[in-house]
Write a protein that binds this DNA or RNA. Structure first.
Lengths: 199, 199
DNA sequence: GACCAATGTTGTCAATGACTACATAGCACC
DNA sequence: GGTGCTATGTAGTCATTGACAACATTGGTC
């Protein structure tokens, strides 16, 4: 099952190793041939499972969205918590996933909507669905105001930006406390509040 | 000055053409040899001006930060405008620059602080300085609240994220009105205001 | 006017992604 | 239980690429 002429589950092995190489060497340092060597198959074995390098990268991205999705789903589950702490958790989960898998997230966030497989499109939508649901809940419970689209855009954009800035070390160090603070800033606004905590 | 054995200003010509190729073909599609062909010099002429491909890309990034910086500087100049419209302008300028030069901005935002030339580090800091100044003004004039670092982080992170989402078409279409709305959301907060425009 | 450093060229090498032809083996079906 | 089919893996080849080395040209300096 693992050492004969047929590998057994080469596709999975390739994906695993590819992600490892992606983390360590970056996308430019990930070559199909090196990957094949690392898994100890011939240099053209990967082509049986991925039409070309782009297909391998896309499969990695899909896998990434699946994992991100399950983390976000866990974080967004309200349980008996209040809304705001849940939102904190979602933000922390997202940023943590991003900083733990920087090269992968960079890859994931680069696909343009138009030139993308249905599979990737679907995986991406699914991964964000739990948060969209949470935002809807926040709106209906009057914890958020505005329209869902704007709120979602601002929230995701900020988290995405936090990741980019953490990734290139514009933000350093990045810790959960900072993320919580950022989320609170988003909720309360950057302008002074006449009625709440003023300047 | 342009057609002899010596080109005259090959370095600039390479940078210009490289940026063009970067926009059209993406970073993966930008090869030194193709670049050399496009500028009609020998395949190794670029090496006289850029030690390797990474150096060329970094020079492109520096150039990008310079251009971005001058646009931000123009946008952040208060003139006789109020603070908030100026902030709108800055946001619009940043996002516009990003969406007009997507591949370049992607490149620019990827450099990690640690493995970067002094030149790039400096160009990056300089490009954001005008906005940092504007934020300081906003704080001192009581248009913003909190500490400069948090405000700056939230502001830039959100804009950076807007770019990423616009770039991969998660936000589509992107127009100035949307950006203004996002900035206002940042200022006023996503949570309902007891005293101001409630739910 | 001779030298020299800057700039450009030609030639070569190993690595890579893609492709083709071939090998092996697991499995369906009789 | 054997036969053939197809999925999976291999070996070989090709054009392209980035890097490097050796050589060529030129403009400026004294």
């Amino acid at each position: 099952m693992s050492k004969g002429y047929h590998h057994g589950d080469l596709r999975a092995a390739l994906l695993t190793k590819a992600e490892e190489l992606l983390q360590t060497s970056g996308e430019s340092g990930l070559s199909l041939r090196e990957l094949a060597r690392a898994v100890e198959v011939s240099h053209s074995a990967p082509s049986r499972h991925f039409a070309d390098k782009a297909a391998l990268l896309e499969a990695l991205a899909v896998e990434g969205f699946r994992r991100l999705g399950s983390e976000l789903e866990a974080a967004a589950a309200l349980g008996d918590r209040d809304f705001v702490p849940t939102l904190h958790d979602v933000a922390v989960s997202f940023v943590r996933f991003s900083t733990e898998n920087p090269a992968l997230v960079e890859l994931m966030s680069r696909y343009r909507r138009e030139d993308v497989t249905d599979e990737l499109r679907h995986a991406r939508a699914a991964s964000f669905a739990p948060v969209a649901t949470l935002i809807d809940i926040g709106l209906s419970e009057n914890e958020l105001s505005g329209d869902a689209r704007t709120v979602g855009t601002v929230f995701f954009a900020t988290l995405q930006g936090i990741f980019v800035m953490a990734n290139n070390k514009t933000i350093d160090p990045l810790n959960d406390e900072l993320i919580v603070r950022v989320v609170d800033s988003l909720l309360n606004g950057l302008a002074p509040h006449p009625s709440r905590s003023g300047s």
